[in-house]
């Protein structure tokens, strides 16, 4: 006794062939905390790097922020300049749009590359000078900064790992 696929089940059987093919394909998922992919070179996140030597205290970043998260307090310096007394970013209210980084006329404010920035208190999300300042260890992102972008490692692309070429 043969099973009739003419009226019912032919399409389903065809679909099952595709599903079976997928069983034999290489795995493309990653086990996150152990296995980490390279993020975009132009990463935008809730981490900032501030270059205090380049910053003139003009507060263009604060004006461009649509949430009003950036606080810049300055005082008059000796050589007709501003001395930056306070520089704070409230990343708890930040939407990571990147307008402040783009607006900076002296390229003193950059995005950072770290992304696991959860805290237990909202108050810890206000980044002061100590957390923002550019040090040899800090990693600025290449967003709107082509000079940093070329130095960063290449982003892991799923197209490389799951492309048609590799499967054949």
């Amino acid at each position: 006794m043969s099973i009739k696929f003419e009226r019912y089940g032919k399409g389903l059987a065809k679909g099952m062939v595709i599903t079976l093919k997928h069983v034999l394909r290489p795995r493309i998922t990653t086990q996150y905390p152990e296995e980490r992919l390279n993020i975009s070179r132009r990463f935008r996140g809730s981490d900032f790097v501030w270059d205090k030597d380049r910053c003139t205290g003009c507060a263009t970043c604060a004006k461009s922020c649509l949430q009003g998260n950036i606080t810049v307090v300055t005082s008059a310096g000796k050589e007709n300049n501003y001395v930056v007394e306070e520089f704070e970013i409230d990343v708890g209210r930040c939407i990571s749009c990147g307008l402040c980084v783009e607006a900076c006329p002296y390229t003193a404010l950059h995005f950072g590359l770290s992304y696991e920035k959860g805290t237990y208190r909202r108050g810890d999300l206000i980044l002061g000078r100590d957390k923002l300042e550019l040090t040899p260890a800090s990693q600025p992102s290449g967003y709107d900064r082509p000079e940093f972008e070329v130095r960063l490692p290449k982003q892991t692309m799923l197209l490389d790992r799951a492309g048609r070429k590799r499967q054949k």
Partner: peptide, 12 residues
Amino acid sequence: KLLDLFEMVCGA
């Protein structure tokens, strides 16, 4: 794959 492309261009 598309999100990877978008991330490469604009960081998000």
